[in-house]
Design a protein around this nucleic acid. Structure first.
Lengths: 341, 341
DNA sequence: CAGCTTGTCTTAAGCGCTTAAGAAAAAGCA
DNA sequence: TGCTTTTTCTTAAGCGCTTAAGACAAGCTG
């Protein structure tokens, strides 16, 4: 019984008689052989059977963002059928996983989720010649890409508030710079955020406000040091303390917005009576918050599924299609109302 | 320049002169060699550099549970230093990942997180002879294990409500049977839940109530078809409709408890005036909920870190230590109060 | 200067599989 | 029956690396 026969017994049953196959399986069970060694098989077939998923933060921060969970699940569901597992590469402090982790990853393809533009991990992927799928980031040559209309969504959010008569705004932004830090940030600096999606959202806000005559210098931008709700509450509390106090808050994510509502409540502000708040993403908590959050909906499942389809396409050796941009939609709930006068 | 030299240049710089090493690196850059192929290296070294993390559900459901995110992050942080990545194996419908996925996983060790007792994945791990670390599950021979005092915590929760004078209880349970289904469930059946942690929590509730004279038959148990908040709201709504209506709800997780509070609010019940609710885990949302949730705190970070330490220990070839059981603690906040009379 | 150690690089085996190509046996065909 | 085709199984190469052992030159020792 040669090793080739055993291999065929497991992988190509049509290559041997049913009787022999049975015998192989019996022998395997007898000697405790659990099937082909995955690594050796990968070496021979040149397929690792896994997709590396690269994040810009640690796992805890990442998964406290419901948007990621949903996207990742949809992606996993799409590629699972083809037998691909997910290898998680959490980020460090430089906008993504360490390059060495990427170089050592046993994966056939890498997915970048909202990494910094200059993340070392992206270079490493290029060096290895790994196929790359990009989610919510600027284009990289040779990579497939799916994004949403961040700028358009942000513009819609700002316009909604303008239509309600608001003139004094505040912006709650995610991390912009290399080092996480919380605090106020000049608009022009925030607009050079390392993270493309954050940058686009800010641009959507600022340009729309400017078009309505609200000058960028008059809109305080507060950067949070992370995406967690505690950090959002902290930042929002201080943002609300600026003078003149804003009557409307534009937040780059739902989590930030919900944190901001908590901060407002603690300051005794009524929502939307004294303060309007709008989020971004339309994750489940947006529906559960009190009051329910006005936000920009994106189809997270479609985004994940699309990323999965793109992955399978690249793995099949086909060329990356033109970038996909998914639409967004303003969802008006109870957290926004007419400007107080 | 032999292949051994190249290998040494990357892995054992002391085995060659600095000059030659430099030359190797220059040549690598010139011809676009990105370093040793991870799979081939794994085959030669017999180390995959990854840990398989097995879940009982899909990713979306899994990560909507904050407890998992925190635990997983702590685990990842612990093992990351040693160069291990995490390979995610999401579950299907049979209490864990498919066996074939486990058999094909390129990993040096498997971590089981709250799988069903009879999950095929556990057998597969055994067949492969992979080291195994177990979190929140009954013991498996040869595996390292970390759990919390589920039963003790549940007992404390029940006792707290008894002390407040409650006599009419309802229990909101997670999935018990093979097939996810929502609905009422006889206590004795719920106690045979496939999931050990759920079983222990239920036992803690029921036994404590029984000791105080509240018969198990008089305590309706409602099983949710998943851990999501929508499902919790749905189940709680119906549980609150039972007659006589409970004045206190024991929930096996914070998410379930928060969903129950939403359901109560919708029925016009005041918390804790008309209804007391207690959760389990003390995840961040428990602090943010309105009112803040009384719950059983467990140290999720310690649990993840411990699992990481156990993993490293097994990977180092050492024997699994005796099972670790972490303590829990009743945290009284605003969702529980004296029984209405 | 013979004999040893040390430093440097190469040879070659082996990790456990897959797969194309070859050999042997069985089957089909005229 | 003699030849070709098909089925069944084996041989052997190769996937890209690591590492023990070997070869060779250079530096020490007395």
């Amino acid at each position: 019984m040669s090793s080739a026969t055993v291999s065929n017994a497991y992988n190509r049953p049509d290559q041997l008689s049913a009787a022999l196959r049975e015998e192989v399986m019996r022998a395997a069970k007898r000697i405790g052989y659990a099937g082909p060694h995955p690594v050796a098989r990968s070496l021979a077939t040149k397929r690792a059977g896994a997709i590396a998923f690269m994040l810009d933060t640690g796992l805890s921060a990442a998964f406290s963002d419901p948007a990621l969970s949903i996207t990742l699940d949809a992606l996993a569901a799409e590629v699972d059928g083809e037998g691909h597992a997910l290898l998680l590469l959490p980020g460090g402090d430089d906008g993504g996983p360490k390059a060495e982790r990427v170089l050592a990853a046993q994966a056939d393809l890498a997915v970048a989720y909202s990494l910094a533009d200059d993340a070392p991990a992206l270079r490493a992927v290029g060096d290895r010649g790994l196929p790359l799928v990009i989610i919510d980031q600027p284009a990289v040559t040779g990579a497939a890409r799916v994004t949403i209309d961040d700028k358009g969504g942000a513009a819609a959010a700002a316009q909604h508030l303008l239509d309600l008569g608001h003139r004094r705004f505040g912006i709650l932004s995610a991390q912009c710079l290399s080092q996480p830090r919380g605090g106020p940030m000049p608009v022009e600096q925030a607009m050079r955020s390392r993270f493309g999606d954050n940058r686009d959202r800010l641009a959507g806000y600022v340009e729309t406000l400017a078009a309505a005559g609200v000058r960028a210098e008059d809109v305080p931008v507060w950067e949070t040091s992370g995406l967690s709700r505690d950090q959002a509450v902290d930042a929002a509390t201080r943002l609300l303390g600026t003078d003149p106090a804003p009557t409307a808050l534009l937040c780059v994510s739902d989590e930030l917005a919900i944190g901001a509502m908590t901060a407002a409540r603690r300051r005794g502000l009524g929502i939307p009576g004294d303060l309007s708040v709008v989020g971004f993403d339309d994750t489940p908590p947006a529906r559960w918050s009190e009051p329910a959050l006005t936000t920009i909906r994106q189809d997270l499942v479609a985004k994940g599924r699309t990323a999965g389809e793109l992955s399978l396409r690249l793995l099949a050796g086909r060329k990356p299609p033109p970038p996909v941009t998914l639409p967004v939609e303003l969802v008006i709930r109870a957290s926004t109302g007419p400007a107080p006068r």
